[in-house]
């Protein structure tokens, strides 16, 4: 790891100021991605701004029919939250299957969503539930947030303060983990909310994406039978030693059907 200057601000405002003042600075929330990246010397920030002491970023609260989760909330907190379990059990389930217990004790929802790793789980939930990402400056709709491989709508120095998930009528997340890393090789989040049905796929492509054909079919008939003949093209999907693009495309179908079945249970 290259050395860096370390800061531990206590407020969002101070954190943002630090990030703006130091163009080569990086924010660290749980550090589950950043620290391994630094260890491999794949990044060389001049400064690291630790959000760990920013109290206002943590916590889970209910606002009307929405669950609002602070950016620094740990995966383990989401997984075990009675509020999340009651409102959107699929979201608690997803959080409880990110990484391993130790990762869930450090990793945060804001960090995961801001990083937008193609194999991360949370982007699937954010898109399928049509969540709203709140930053220190604005609110961003899920469909506008994820831009591409490790790319988001966040501007330099912009921090996720919370994410608001609308309650789902039915929802489930099915993950096919990479056998080695256990990251999502294909993860499908299916949700039926007041706004309609959404099917979001993570892991399979360079960035989370929706499957319109499945959404349309499920809107008419929310059953796995309704999507059994819908295939998605392998073009543009990820391919590696663990899964070809063709295999991933196939798994999207399998995981989507299983997610619908689980959501109907």
């Amino acid at each position: 790891m290259y050395d860096f200057a370390y800061h531990r601000p206590k407020s969002v405002a101070d954190a943002v100021k630090l990030l703006k003042d130091k163009p080569e600075a990086r924010a660290i929330s749980g550090g589950m991605t950043l620290i391994p990246t630094l260890k491999q010397r794949l990044a060389r920030p001049s400064d690291v701004v630790d959000l760990g002491a920013v109290k206002e970023l943590s916590g889970i609260k209910l606002e009307g029919t929405n669950v609002v989760i602070g950016g620094m909330t740990k995966h383990a907190e989401v997984a075990t939250s009675a509020d999340v379990k009651a409102a959107i059990p699929a979201l608690a389930h997803l959080a409880g299957h990110i990484g391993d217990p130790q990762v869930r004790n450090r990793g945060t929802i804001g960090g995961s969503v801001a990083n937008n790793d193609p194999a991360a789980d949370y982007p699937g939930a954010v898109v399928a539930l049509n969540a709203t990402v709140t930053t220190n400056t604005r609110k961003i709709a899920a469909d506008e947030f994820f831009k591409g491989l490790f790319e988001t709508a966040l501007a330099d120095g912009e921090l996720i303060t919370s994410i608001s998930f609308p309650k789902a009528e039915k929802a489930a997340y099915m993950k096919f983990p990479n056998p080695a890393s256990r990251y999502a090789m294909v993860g499908v989040f299916v949700a039926k909310t007041a706004a309609g049905v959404r099917v979001a796929v993570t892991g399979a492509g360079p960035c989370v994406f929706r499957v319109k054909a499945m959404e349309d079919a499920l809107a008419k008939n929310f059953s796995s039978a309704a999507i059994k003949d819908i295939t998605i093209p392998a073009d543009g999907l990820n391919s590696d030693i663990h899964g070809s693009a063709e295999y991933r495309a196939h798994l999207v179908g399998v995981m989507a059907r299983r997610a619908v079945d689980a959501a109907n249970k």
């Binding site: 056998p179 590696d240 030693i241 663990h242």
Partner: peptide, 10 residues
Amino acid sequence: ISGSFMDYTM
């Protein structure tokens, strides 16, 4: 390619 526990399945 299988150069870490991320890609070599232990």
